Simulated scan of single mutants.
Amino acid sequence: MVNGLTIGQAAAFVGVTVKTVRHYHRLGLVAEPDRDASGYRRYRSGELFRLVQVRTLAAAGVPLAETVDLLDADAETFAVTLESVHHRLTERIEELTARRDRLHRLDHGDRALLPDRACAVLERLAELGFGPDYVSVQREALVLSRALVPEIFDIFLTQLERSLDDPESVELTKRGWEARSWDPDDPRIEELAAAMTDKLLADRALLAMPTEFRNQSDAASRYALVNQHREDESASVVRLNRLVEANLREAGIAVPGQ
């Protein structure tokens, strides 16, 4: 009567290859069973259970070098180690989920680079009648802001959201976009800068930048890269932005220097 499984049958039962079982034997993870009268090693319930344990721990990410000590440890040590493995697996699951979500966002345009909240702002711009060119520039500005000045990205989004809920702000923004075609010395630029400044100062809390951001040595240069985005396309926009910044500083707002 045959009592036990061959190495091939045991490997298939556990879900590994014969080569893997032999590797476990070489590492001392599983003792080799005795040979029967026919010269075959027969795996009985004890060896099979040990193989299942080793296979399960290996699949969970426990290094094989740690498995022997773990399996031979007392119940308390075993429980603590399993909790650590559980924590590592949870982190791995979260990482893989994040990767899956990023891949999913690649099929959804702006969402590959921006959070849903920022995408909603871009959709709102289109609904309010801003043209594709303006929306495209704002998309680039949001991406740059998120990449270069993440410390104030949420502040930037909140400012945009509130301005889009204010018809006067929307009108001022549209005039600012139209100003691209104005002469840099056009007196309307100073008038527009003053109006924009007044609107911004109406809610000073939104203009406050985190102290930790202001204290970073590269804060001004990173801020400038975002704030000066596309300025080279219009000298009038450069003048408009500089006037607004100067007005804000004069009013006591800490705008990062150029």
Rank of each mutant, 00 (worst) to 15 (best):
Val2Pro: 15
Gln9Asp: 10
Ala11Asp: 02
Gly15Tyr: 02
Val16Arg: 08
Thr17Ser: 15
Lys19Val: 00
Thr20Ser: 05
Thr20Tyr: 07
Val21Tyr: 05
Tyr24Phe: 12
Tyr24Leu: 01
Arg26Leu: 05
Arg26Gly: 00
Ala31Phe: 03
Pro33Phe: 01
Pro33Gly: 05
Arg35Lys: 15
Ser38Cys: 06
Tyr43Asn: 01
Arg44Met: 03
Glu47Cys: 04
Phe49Tyr: 11
Arg50Trp: 08
Arg50Lys: 13
Leu51Asp: 10
Leu51Lys: 09
Gln53Arg: 15
Gln53Ala: 07
Val54Asp: 01
Arg55Pro: 00
Thr56Lys: 03
Ala58Leu: 00
Ala58Pro: 00
Pro63Gln: 00
Leu64Arg: 11
Ala65Tyr: 08
Leu70Gln: 01
Leu70Gly: 02
Leu71Trp: 04
Leu71Pro: 06
Glu76Phe: 13
Phe78Glu: 11
Phe78Trp: 11
Glu83Gln: 13
Ser84Pro: 01
Thr90Gln: 09
Glu91Leu: 12
Glu91Ile: 13
Arg99Ala: 11
Asp101Asn: 05
Asp101Met: 05
Leu103Asp: 10
His104Cys: 01
His104Leu: 07
Leu106Asn: 04
His108Met: 06
Gly109Ile: 00
Asp110Tyr: 07
Arg111Cys: 04
Arg111Tyr: 12
Ala112Gln: 04
Ala112Glu: 00
Asp116Ile: 12
Arg117Gln: 14
Ala118Cys: 06
Cys119His: 06
Leu128Cys: 06
Asp133Asn: 11
Val135Phe: 09
Val135Trp: 07
Arg139Glu: 06
Glu140His: 15
Glu140Trp: 14
Ala141Pro: 03
Val143Glu: 13
Ser145Tyr: 11
Arg146Trp: 14
Phe153Asn: 09
Phe153His: 12
Phe156Val: 08
Thr158Phe: 13
Asp165Ile: 08
Asp166Gln: 13
Asp166Ile: 05
Pro167Thr: 00
Glu171Gln: 15
Glu171Leu: 10
Lys174Ala: 08
Lys174Gly: 11
Glu178Gly: 08
Asp183Arg: 11
Ile189Cys: 09
Glu190Phe: 07
Ala193His: 12
Ala194Asp: 14
Ala194Arg: 14
Met196Thr: 13
Asp198Ser: 14
Ala205Thr: 14
Ala205Leu: 09
Thr211His: 08
Thr211Lys: 09
Phe213Asn: 02
Asn215Gln: 13
Ala219Met: 02
Ala219Lys: 04
Ala219Thr: 02
Ala220Gly: 01
Asn227Trp: 06
Asn227Pro: 05
Asn227Ala: 01
Gln228Asp: 14
Arg230Met: 07
Ala235Met: 08
Ser236Phe: 01
Val237Ala: 04
Val237Asn: 10
Leu240Asn: 08
Leu240Gly: 04
Asn241Pro: 10
Arg242Met: 01
Arg242Gly: 10
Val244Cys: 09
Glu245Arg: 15
Leu248Asp: 08
Arg249Lys: 15
Ala251Ile: 06
Ala254Arg: 15
Val255Gly: 04
